[in-house]
């Protein structure tokens, strides 16, 4: 606890560094017993710690990662905040509305093995909705949910201190120009709001290290599950891995899927989910995404708000049996082009 306070002070009390030194000297070194720090410990204490990362003792732990509430269900989600480390840059961003946008809610079709197959149903209104309104499922126009001013949003526990005010119009929050290695693996990340439309809220996460997929391409075959592998995290098992497939750059397929898997370094997408996904149509060149993340959320009378600390990576996807063709683009040897559907069969 004292260590955590000192750590926070080290980032916030820049002009009072000498006080920090005095306090640190007065307190001396912390004991080796039960700790509340964000980093993992390997002590042999039988009493569990409350840090963000799992320890190696034999008992169950109550570390903060396990206490994270997870991401919002999409049917309740009204927005959230994200700390994201991409291969070329890192950002913090978010926006929270005062209601759910109907068009963002997908219909669940199938759930198996931590994976979900969903279908997009486009709400349709005739005549179209006036400005400031959006179409609801019953064909009526409803007011478009308004973006909320949540005051100043601060995110601590990153390589850079982030304090964001809402950008107008739209009350969206973002911070750019941040260090590429923004997250410190295993480090607790906290998000707090002050002022604004709501009472202060606090959400938590844990810094994740970049995920490294084991394969550059996934090969998907009808009727077969897809085995996935990646380099497991070195900082403990605080994170989970979100798996998604983008098979529809042209927007013709109504289906989408995602899986939330333990961050153990391996997982599987069931054949039933894949068959349902690709059976609904493929357009463009499919890609897959593995995202290491932690997810926390809270729900109030408006809906659910989540906070993700994540690191996504993209891989190519080869779908056996899905080879686009036309009269001018021949198929590989042994296959013939079905011009009616534009596929090699």
């Amino acid at each position: 606890m004292w260590e955590e306070s000192l750590r926070r002070c080290a980032t916030r009390c820049r002009g009072s560094w000498w006080l920090l030194v005095v306090v640190a000297l007065g307190l001396g070194c912390p004991s080796r017993g039960d700790d509340d720090d964000a980093a993992d410990d390997d002590d042999s204490a039988t009493v569990d710690d409350d840090d963000a990362v799992d320890d190696d003792d034999s008992g169950d732990d109550d570390d903060s990662a396990s206490a994270l509430a997870g991401a919002c269900d999409q049917s309740m989600r009204i927005g959230g905040f994200v700390v994201e480390s991409l291969p070329e840059y890192s950002v913090v961003q978010g926006q929270v509305l005062d209601g759910v946008v109907p068009g963002n809610v997908l219909e669940p079709l199938l759930a198996e093995g931590g994976c979900q197959l969903l279908r997009r149903n486009n709400p349709f209104c005739d005549p179209g909705c006036d400005p400031g309104f959006t179409c609801d499922w019953d064909g009526s126009c409803i007011p478009y949910p308004a973006a909320l001013d949540l005051g100043v949003v601060t995110v601590d526990g990153l390589a850079a201190e982030v304090s964001m005010e809402p950008v107008q119009p739209g009350n969206n929050y973002f911070a750019v120009g941040l260090p590429l290695e923004l997250m410190l693996a295993g480090q607790e990340v906290t998000l707090e709001t002050t002022g604004g439309a709501w009472d202060p809220i606090a959400l938590r996460g844990v810094g994740v290290e970049p995920l490294v997929p084991a394969d550059e391409d996934w090969v998907v075959e009808e009727g077969e599950p897809l085995a996935l592998s990646w380099t497991p995290p070195t900082s403990g098992a605080a994170s989970e891995v979100l798996v998604s497939l983008n098979i529809d750059q042209h927007g013709v397929s109504p289906a989408t899927m995602f899986c939330i898997l333990p961050d153990t370094g391996e997982g599987e997408i069931p054949a039933s989910v894949l068959d349902g996904l690709f059976g609904a149509g493929v357009s463009g060149f499919p890609t897959g995404q593995l995202t290491r993340r932690t997810a926390d959320s809270l729900t109030n009378e408006f809906g659910c708000v989540d906070f993700l600390a994540r690191s996504p990576r993209t891989v190519g996807v080869d779908v056996v049996g899905y080879i686009p063709c036309d009269a001018m683009t021949p198929c590989p040897k042994g296959l013939e082009c079905n011009l009616a559907i534009g596929l090699c069969l």
Partner: peptide, 24 residues
């Protein structure tokens, strides 16, 4: 963007110009 036509100001502010037209 999605079902909307959005406005993004030069400072990064965002608003919805029109919703539900499903344009490309």
């Amino acid at each position: 963007a999605g079902f909307n036509v959005a406005r993004v100001t030069q400072s990064g502010g965002q608003s919805v110009i029109v919703s539900s037209l499903n344009l490309y």
